[in-house]
Design a protein around this nucleic acid. Structure first.
Length: 487
DNA sequence: TCGATTATTAACTGT
DNA sequence: ACAGTTCCATAATCGA
């Protein structure tokens, strides 16, 4: 009943937002971008462009420094068990002991986790260069934030869809295997993206690397891509601390939450569990806590001050795929789950054994994401039932469903519709190698296409400060970054 | 109701 | 250009 009071409070604010939003939308010019569905005569259109920016995409060859790292993790059958099976034989019994594999506990230095090529000396220099970059960016970001606090100018900036283009230099293969998660640094003047893949590797791509002023500082053929191996199973969440860019949280199916602390040049181990961790989300108003979905439907909170997980609770019948917080109402949280539902919760109510949600959206099939719009007026859900849900209005009572093909099969990570820079558009992958842009204002859906996009983008991240900069990641480890071409 | 099983799918790998 | 491999997602289908 305490929640009732907040809701009215909350409602009032939302109504104001809705009004503001409507004004914004009506003043917004309609883009009817001609849908050039090149119904692609066949599939073999062009695939050469994707290797525009190649990388050490493959497994390291036999080189001295790598052997050192390999000896720690890969190839490691738990030594105390399974010896009787003989080596290499463990492949034949997939029933047990397969997945948890050689999980490394405790902190790992960034250099140890670094996966590069070339001489050890070059690797050290290259890796150090990234550390310096992130450190410097952390400082400049703090300065610019404190001087003119014009963050608000970005939120609500409208976007001209026609201006979005994909340049070949903004295409790169940054990782082997599926990218499951990516996140662009919340930094005003730089474009750096962090991506995690199914193998537990983390890539950091500094897209401004080739514009670097200090050419003589460049090491080897510096493509701005840095590869680390902090986890041993799929990376399920990446969170960059907005006010401390040198801290990047990662969660993984290996049951660990790590913190890449660039100041300490290490991947700290914050939390470890026998169960998989499926998602990770920072509380926007409590900088020191991250929420994460663990095991079957459980939500858990990591509290940095306490140095441990503070509370847990079962919210769903199956795994929680995403957690997201309302941008204004500090007690409002949304979850999506493979149990077929997305829910909105009052944080004060989720301590009970069987908490009750404020709102539940039933998709009947797995829900892969549920994200609040930048204003908080709308919740967008993406489900395996081929619907994108828009939940808005007073108390989120108004539910509309947009048809969208979300049948990705087995090899493509599930689609998740994300918001751009205002409440106007959602961005989601398209099975025909495009980016679908869903309008919330009852306009026709538009598909972004490019000859340089040779695979299906399934996961996205929008640059928090650069309107129009949208990075899409594929099952093949590529990242395609669309930008807004001025004028 | 709960397991175990299978079909589905796109892109990479390597001849 | 072709075929073989990926393999821990999801839903539908059987069998206990």
């Amino acid at each position: 009943m305490a929640s009732q009071k907040t809701l009215t409070d909350y409602e009032r604010r939302r109504l104001e937002n809705i009004k503001r939003n409507q004004e914004m939308m009506s003043s917004f010019k309609i883009q009817s971008v001609a849908n050039q569905f090149h119904s692609s005569t066949s599939k073999r259109q062009r695939t050469e462009t994707k290797t525009y920016k190649t990388n050490r995409g493959k497994q390291p060859k036999s080189e001295a420094p790598i052997v050192m790292r390999r000896s720690l993790r890969a190839r490691g059958i738990p030594p105390e068990k399974k010896i009787g099976l003989g080596e290499e034989e463990n492949v034949t019994n997939p029933t047990e002991s397969e997945y948890p594999s050689p999980k490394k506990l405790g902190p790992v230095t960034m250099l140890d986790a670094y996966n590069g090529t070339g001489s050890l000396d070059n690797q050290m220099k290259h890796q150090k260069h990234l550390i310096d970059t992130i450190k410097s960016l952390s400082e400049t970001n703090l300065m610019s934030c404190s001087i003119h606090d014009d963050d608000a100018s970005v939120i609500g900036s409208s976007l001209d869809l026609e201006s979005l283009i994909l340049k070949p230099e903004n295409v790169a293969r940054v990782l082997p295997k599926n990218i499951l998660n990516l996140c662009i640094f919340p930094c005003k003047n730089r474009s750096i993206v962090v991506a995690g893949n199914k193998a537990g590797s983390l890539a950091i791509w500094d897209m401004d690397a080739d514009l670097k002023e200090d050419k003589e500082e460049q090491i080897g053929n510096d493509d701005g891509i840095y590869l680390y191996d902090p986890h041993t199973a799929p990376i399920s969440g990446i969170v960059i601390q907005p006010f401390s860019l040198s801290k990047v949280y990662t969660s993984s199916y290996d049951g660990c939450i790590r913190l890449m602390d660039v100041e300490k040049e290490a991947f700290d181990m914050l939390y470890s569990s026998d169960d998989a961790i499926f998602c990770l989300s920072p509380h926007p108003h409590e900088a020191k806590s991250v929420y994460f979905g663990e095991a079957q439907g459980m939500i858990n909170v990591w509290d940095e001050r306490a140095g441990k997980s503070s509370s847990s609770c079962i919210l769903h019948d199956q795994q929680i795929n995403t957690i997201d917080f309302h941008p204004e109402n500090t007690n409002c949280m949304a979850t999506s789950s493979s149990d077929g539902t997305a829910c909105i919760w009052d944080l004060r109510n989720i301590n009970a054994n069987r908490p009750e949600s404020l709102k539940m959206v039933d998709h009947k099939k797995a829900v892969h994401s549920a994200y609040f719009s930048p204003s908080g007026n709308c919740l967008a859900t993406t489900s395996a039932n081929d619907k994108v849900g828009l939940i808005r209005g007073t108390n989120f009572m108004d539910i509309s469903m947009v048809q969208h093909n979300n049948q990705v099969g087995r090899w493509i990570p599930s689609f998740r519709a994300i918001w751009g820079w205002d409440d106007s558009y959602l961005f989601i992958g398209n099975m025909k190698r495009g980016v679908d842009v869903i309008s919330t204002g009852y306009r026709k859906m538009v598909t972004l296409e490019s000859p340089y996009m040779s695979a299906i983008p399934c996961r996205f991240s929008a640059h928090p400060y650069k309107v129009g900069m949208l990075a899409g990641a594929t099952a093949g480890g590529q990242i395609y970054t669309w930008v807004s071409q001025q004028h």
